[in-house]
Nucleic acid binder design. Structure first.
Length: 310
DNA sequence: AACAGGCTCAACCGCCCGGAA
DNA sequence: ATTCCGGGCGGTTGAGCCTGT
């Protein structure tokens, strides 16, 4: 509780000073109040909701807390390989449209995806000493990183034989058959258990050490901090780390458009890319050659091992 | 064990947009 | 036509945690 009080010592805006609105981390009581109120009255009209619920918070704060944390279908834990792949692809398509990207990653919030991008992808760009928006880096992502991800997903599919690997099997079969492309947002897709996703309890962890300490998303409790570590790269472990909606969303990816398209384009490996005669500029090719020299170790583990070695 | 630096992510900020008054 | 307000979005911050030395 002291931690929360200390963390709440933000400077207040004039408006909030006048209204003496609370800021900083949410307490258990506030969470419960908000959840109960929304369960009874629904969401929306956040400012009046905050007042009516007796929450001494801004409407924005309530909305953010609900959308990013308390919503029953919020999915937490490690970003899976499939999700990484989707994020990279969708970001290359739409740029920093985090909410739009998040719409295609069920249960993930724009905030989470944004954080992933900033902490992981931008870091890699920085370590490669190029701008994250440069053509060089984009080409590296598209022709080395993403194909490598597909490889890893497929590798896991063959070794695990579990449901997580179904994504790639489905991707391949979809590619070969030209079968249905599922829309991630189509909740009529029976592969996704919408009902259970909605009724599962919210994420906050209320540790029961007698003092009912509240852990608002503490990475040490809710999700492994090693979100991209080698351990986390194992899909089984990844999914095991999901306390909420575990496994539900795996099926989502089984027929996902991107994986399907990706396999369809034979972008299975970097080599394949080049053999396909991709549209690479001379500069990009030189860059690729340079990166390619170290790509084996680099793409062997996307989670920084190569970077650490160098 | 202690310290420093890096990393993560919840929460906030400021801007913008659309609809209602 | 203008103003106000609710809501959404992308960017930023900073406390706590993790990891290496």
């Amino acid at each position: 509780m002291e931690q929360m009080q200390a963390k709440a010592n933000y400077s207040k805006s004039t408006e909030e000073e006048m209204a003496d609105l609370r800021r900083g981390p949410w307490t258990v009581e506030e969470d419960l109040t908000l959840m109960n109120y929304i369960a009874r009255h629904g969401e929306g009209r956040w400012n009046s909701l905050s007042r009516c619920a007796g929450l001494n918070r801004t409407g924005k704060s309530c909305r953010l807390r609900w959308l990013n944390y308390l919503r029953p279908d919020v999915r937490r834990g490690n970003i899976t390989l499939e999700e990484q792949l989707l994020i990279l692809e969708l970001h290359s398509r739409w740029g920093n449209r985090w909410s739009k990207i998040a719409q295609h990653l069920p249960g993930r919030t724009d905030n989470e995806i944004k954080n992933y991008w900033r902490t992981r992808v931008q870091k890699h760009a920085k370590q490669l000493k190029c701008d994250v928006n440069s053509k060089q880096f984009k080409d590296t992502m598209r022709y080395l990183w993403m194909p490598r991800l597909v490889e890893r997903i497929q590798a896991q599919a063959t070794t695990s034989g579990g449901s997580g690997g179904a994504a790639v099997a489905a991707a391949s079969s979809y590619a070969n058959s030209g079968a249905t492309v599922y829309d991630l947002n189509d909740q009529s897709n029976t592969d996704f258990d919408v009902v259970s996703a909605q009724v599962l309890p919210p994420q906050p962890v209320y540790g029961d050490g007698g003092a009912h300490m509240y852990s608002p998303g503490s990475s040490s409790v809710v999700a492994s901090s090693d979100s991209f570590g080698t351990a986390a790269s194992d899909m089984t472990e990844c999914y095991n780390n999901y306390p909420v909606n575990q496994g539900n969303n795996q099926d989502y990816y089984q027929g996902h458009e991107y994986l399907s398209n990706y396999a369809d384009q034979s972008l299975i490996s970097p080599t394949g890319c080049f053999q396909q005669g991709m549209d690479l500029s001379e500069d990009s090719c030189q860059w690729m050659n340079a990166v390619g020299d170290i790509s084996d170790s680099l793409w062997n583990d996307i989670d920084d091992v190569w970077f650490l070695q160098h």
